[in-house]
Simulated scan of single mutants.
Amino acid sequence: MTEETKQNTWKSDLYFWLQALVMVLTVLILIFTFVGRIIVVDGISMEPTLYHGDLLLLQSVGYTPKQGDVVVLTKEFEDADGPIVKRVIATGGQHVVIDYDAGTVTVDGEVLDEPYIKEAMMQPPEESITDILVPEGSIFVMGDNRNHSSDSRNVTLGAVDERYVLGRALWVFFPFQDFGAISNGEA
């Protein structure tokens, strides 16, 4: 192989890899711009479903919140510096009743089966919402770690307008030991 042939082969290989890199980056940018996003969980309010530092893939485009979904909200709230992650308990038009003595959440007269919560729910020390008809176009959200979650029970947040929903959390993809789909709470 001549020196000129080696140089042409090297240039050809470099050109191929640069094209491949540009194509991959373009596809990733398009996916994360129009289809989904990546968010980092901040805090312990969603344990045991999600943990602080988990990297989530969100579905953003074409998503309408549904009961049981884990969503990311952009609404500024208390000491949250960025997006907050919570579970949708009820959507617009549904009636939520929280009974701290029984440790239950009832939506439209039906007690929710919540195998995803971390521990029995205790009455929070601050004023909280225990009975609400969720306004149309809004959602009522709670953390899975109810005793360490600032959520829609807090009167300063309450029901959240759906326009604050950044997307539904689909997958944990880092850390690798937690890799997998996120359950919407159904058995």
Rank of each mutant, 00 (worst) to 15 (best):
G158Q: 08
T106A: 04
P125H: 09
K66S: 12
K66N: 11
K118I: 01
F140N: 07
P135D: 12
G103T: 01
R37C: 00
E114L: 08
A159I: 03
I84L: 14
D81F: 00
I38L: 06
R87M: 07
D42S: 14
S138D: 15
V41N: 08
P175I: 03
S150T: 01
I117V: 14
D101R: 03
T91R: 03
N154Q: 00
T5M: 13
S138M: 13
G92W: 04
V88E: 02
L18W: 04
V70M: 06
A187I: 05
I98R: 09
E110F: 03
F179L: 15
I44D: 12
S183W: 03
G109I: 04
A187T: 06
E119H: 03
L18N: 05
V97I: 15
D101L: 02
S12N: 15
E110Q: 12
P124R: 06
L57V: 15
D178G: 10
E3T: 14
M1S: 14
D99L: 04
I182L: 10
V107A: 04
F174M: 12
V160T: 09
P135G: 12
I132W: 05
L14I: 13
N147H: 03
Y100Q: 00
L170N: 08
A90H: 03
P124S: 09
S45A: 09
Y63C: 00
I98V: 15
V72S: 13
A80S: 14
T26C: 14
F77W: 07
D144A: 08
V97F: 09
T64I: 11
D42I: 07
A169C: 06
G180N: 12
R87N: 05
I31C: 08
K6R: 14
Y164I: 04
Q177T: 07
S150A: 09
A187L: 07
V85Y: 06
V71W: 02
L166T: 04
Q59A: 10
Y15Q: 15
I44V: 11
G167M: 11
M121H: 04
V41D: 10
Y51H: 15
G53M: 11
T2I: 00
I117C: 07
Q123K: 13
M121G: 05
E126C: 02
V71Q: 02
M121I: 05
V22A: 15
P175M: 05
W10F: 14
P115M: 02
P48Q: 09
V22I: 12
G62H: 07
L25D: 03
S138T: 09
P124E: 07
Q7F: 13
F173G: 11
V97Y: 09
S149Q: 04
F140Y: 15
V71M: 04
L30K: 01
K6F: 11
F77R: 01
S138A: 14
G82C: 00
G53K: 11
P48F: 12
L56D: 06
I132G: 04
D13R: 14
T74F: 00
G36S: 08
H52E: 13
Q67G: 08
